[in-house]
Design a binder for these strands. Sequence first.
DNA 1: GGCTTTAGTGGGAGCGCTCTCACCACATGG
DNA 2: CCATGTGGTGAGAGCGCTCCCACTAAAGCC
Lengths: 350, 350
Amino acid sequence: MNANSSRPAPAAAGRPSPTLEDLALAAGVSRSTASRAINGGSKVSAQAQAAVDAAIVALGYTPNRAARSLVTRRAGSVALVIPEPDARVMMDPYFAAVIMGVNEALRETDLQLVLLMSRAGDDSARTIRYLRGGHVDGAIVVSHHRADDWVESLGATGLPTVFIGRPWDTESGIPYVDLDNFEGGRLAARHLSGAGRSKLATIAGPTDMTAAVDRLQGWLQGLREAGLQPGPVIHGDFTTAGGADAAARLLAEAPDVDGIFAASDLMALGVVDTLRGKGRRVPDEVAVVGFDNHSIQAANGLGLTTVAHPMADIAAAAGKLLVDAIANPGELPEPVIYPAELVVRGSSVA
Amino acid sequence: MNANSSRPAPAAAGRPSPTLEDLALAAGVSRSTASRAINGGSKVSAQAQAAVDAAIVALGYTPNRAARSLVTRRAGSVALVIPEPDARVMMDPYFAAVIMGVNEALRETDLQLVLLMSRAGDDSARTIRYLRGGHVDGAIVVSHHRADDWVESLGATGLPTVFIGRPWDTESGIPYVDLDNFEGGRLAARHLSGAGRSKLATIAGPTDMTAAVDRLQGWLQGLREAGLQPGPVIHGDFTTAGGADAAARLLAEAPDVDGIFAASDLMALGVVDTLRGKGRRVPDEVAVVGFDNHSIQAANGLGLTTVAHPMADIAAAAGKLLVDAIANPGELPEPVIYPAELVVRGSSVA
DNA sequence: GGCTTTAGTGGGAGCGCTCTCACCACATGG
DNA sequence: CCATGTGGTGAGAGCGCTCCCACTAAAGCC
């Protein structure tokens, strides 16, 4: 296609990349005019603009981010903070979806995504120091637990911050994007009761995450509305193995259960596995509803009834919110809540 | 787009972060000495060092990365390049493991991880321009396909680059870290033949990835050594759904198969699922061996025999290799190959 | 005519840092 | 005695960029 743009600057070792000065010289204008042309300045004549554009192509010019950052006082990057200490939980494809979504939102901007993962306690200090150090223009925080109180203090630093998933402290008005987890839990309860199940139980998520709490509250509310007993509540850790364990405990406690709501598809997978291992037929004897609408659930033979959780979309929305917040500092955007939707498949209906 | 970026000030916060000048003043030394103290300079007296250290704490000083970058001509960051166009494949926990591993390797350095994902064709041009623009000090490329030829040209730009997984073009001497995929495939073949299976088949991965090709070659070699027929080879896409599909095709082609090697655990999950759906007992009628030793495989009721693939370790090794390559430019490190190990579980032995 | 306005331009200054270099004191060696 | 280190220091020069301000030329208005 374009011959001279194919190899602008291989330049092993020696040749330093052209500076704005070089560009201005090549275009026959001043450094100031070149800068204006690059940044879409309004006060540039058509021919100056054209000359600069041509010179950019000819020289393969790329602005030096560091120099620009230094004077604009903008880092040109945003952090994705994952305060997740456990490598196993990190394996959850949830994070992959989040990363993709945020990346998607940043595509049109010239912001780059910096990953910040903290594990041990000491690391969180390091993370917050980094965030406050002005090394990024904003932050997106995902999957934070109640113990991660430092995260909330971010809002006070003036660094634009958006949460994915409702934070524990909504008082501070930090914007966030989330699924309507409460409604999701409620939908699960309504669905199972509507399918004629009455001895219901749930494998809930960890109590230190708002998503888990909301799903559980919604579930209990749904049962109440259906006039059913709340039934056993076992807590798992959102993983497959955790779901399998929890199901075993559940069966010991309530052998006559005929419907289970697992607060994640991964746990639901473990639940189905345990049920089958104990000889219970799904959905005939026990109906199972999951949460997330993971692609992995296809492995289940029968499809898994679940609550859709468009994680990538949610992450992308959070990314856009952050971009806006950076552009218009001061104004706090409203939280965005995605509606919950039930996807009915074979695991809950005969 | 953002032409109205006329906001140089750090917005609300007010308090501008202290500069090196402030630090030097507080410590009662010169800017030069303060700089030396910060960067572990050898020519600093004990008391000057102590004074600077104290001032750092007192002021909460953080060096301005942009200013430092500008003069040192180092970006202070490395890119993790994921040339993966398909969101669904991205869901593979593989990437989470890679990200964690690389992050781990970078922990001790002050390099930050920048994520670069390219999807459509146009994006790859953008990506390579970014990489050549000197915005990062090095790059790690993961999961690259044969069509991503631009990736290989990176080596010629002088940008330190390390591959995770053997690249197609090893001539250029680009360092890489990989699992011994060939041996892994061979182990699978030896294991199944050793277990008395003789009507063997494999669900291989995509032909445009070296890992898939190597596993297949190893498998075929192993069969040859055992004196068995190569048997059917069906190609999947490493996903669960792809594995299920491939298994269905396989059963149509070779209904009497008694052992299947799936080149990923995700595919193996789909295979087991399809087998059960068709009423074949695993492992009694058909033994299954996977690849990767995913945690997800626990969902399978019986454990899945598989080839261990320490992805996080491999990624961490790649990270270290890159850090070394950045520190010592010019010398190309040798590739690192991790040995393959078989993990025997219930899916292949009665 | 004198003025203001306006579109466009170029010359500086300086962002916060590192690094070279000159410099000083005090050792050591001839 | 001078020559030669040697550990420690500080002043100054930029790195490449954006932005403020002074400036021009052409146009508009009384």
